[in-house]
Simulated scan of single mutants.
Amino acid sequence: MSQFNDLARNGLWSNNPALVQLLGLCPLLAVSNSLVNALGLGLATLMVLVGANISVSLIRYHVPDSVRLPAFVMIIAAFVTCADLLMQAYTFELHRTLGIFIPLIVTNCAILGRADAFASKNPILPAATDGLMMGLGFASVLILLGGIRELFGSGTLFADMHQLLGPIAADWQMTVFPDYDFLFLVLPPGAFFATGLLIALKNWIDGRLAKRRQRQQPTSAQSRRVRVTGTIR
């Protein structure tokens, strides 16, 4: 359980592919101008990460080092093709909106990096967990960024959600700021700005947590000395 807790903490926070490793920034910045786009690409990336990690773990003893990376790229490309065809079949409008960024998941360094650094060296269950947590970490940042840019750029939330979830989500749009349009956040420069704010917020939280741990360490050491002294007496 300790290993799975570490994998969850690394994927969601400590080693988040978007905020710490800064991988996959091209789709992260390009399609996060709305919540539906971010959610669609996040789910596709999650599917590819989990599938690729499981497949790489399954064949880790059967692929020679000389063709390891090409084999991993082919596996990732196969899962990306599946995700692309599924989105084209069931969410065609969203597929057309995302465009080239769905096939570009193949070039996402986070996916190839996890396949080579972790899945190729670990059994199936840890590899699947690593892919799931890394995918959730990337998707959560993508969704948060899409929500921020849509809310403060267009004044709405959940706009066009029917493109992903169908007619059930046709009335989900919330207009938070009527007659509002802040073009800077909708355009790519706004994506850089919002991503920088998220990275700064994470670093600030990490700094506060580190200071709290430092304050607790002397107290713990003092309590241990008291217990030892009491034992000697």
Rank of each mutant, 00 (worst) to 15 (best):
A170S: 12
T81N: 06
I75M: 10
T45S: 10
Q214F: 10
I232K: 13
V50R: 07
V48D: 02
M47Y: 13
L187T: 10
L49I: 09
D179H: 09
A194Y: 06
Y61M: 11
I205Q: 11
K211S: 14
N203Q: 15
G11N: 05
L35E: 07
S154G: 10
K202A: 07
T129C: 13
G230N: 14
G190N: 06
T156N: 10
A139E: 01
A44K: 03
F72M: 14
I75N: 05
A115Y: 07
I105H: 04
T175K: 06
G24L: 02
P167Y: 05
F4R: 13
V80G: 00
A71M: 15
A71K: 09
V80P: 01
L209H: 09
L144S: 12
Q222M: 15
N203I: 08
G146T: 00
R225T: 11
E93N: 14
C26Y: 06
R149K: 03
P126H: 04
I143K: 06
A44N: 02
F152C: 03
S14W: 11
L58C: 08
F118D: 02
H162F: 08
R96A: 14
L197S: 05
H162V: 07
L85K: 13
F72P: 00
D116V: 11
D130I: 03
R227M: 15
L35V: 11
N53W: 00
L185W: 11
T231A: 14
G147E: 01
L142S: 12
L164W: 00
L28A: 10
L25C: 00
I105E: 04
S66W: 10
Y180L: 03
M161F: 15
V73C: 10
A83L: 03
L39D: 04
R9P: 08
K121S: 12
N10A: 10
G42D: 00
A115L: 06
Q173R: 15
L104C: 08
P167L: 04
H162G: 11
C109W: 02
T195E: 13
N37P: 02
V80C: 02
M161V: 05
Q222F: 14
L197T: 04
D84L: 11
V56D: 03
V20H: 05
T156Y: 07
V141Q: 00
A8I: 14
P70I: 06
F192T: 11
G146Q: 00
A89Q: 11
I105T: 09
K202R: 15
A38S: 12
F182G: 02
I105R: 06
P188H: 05
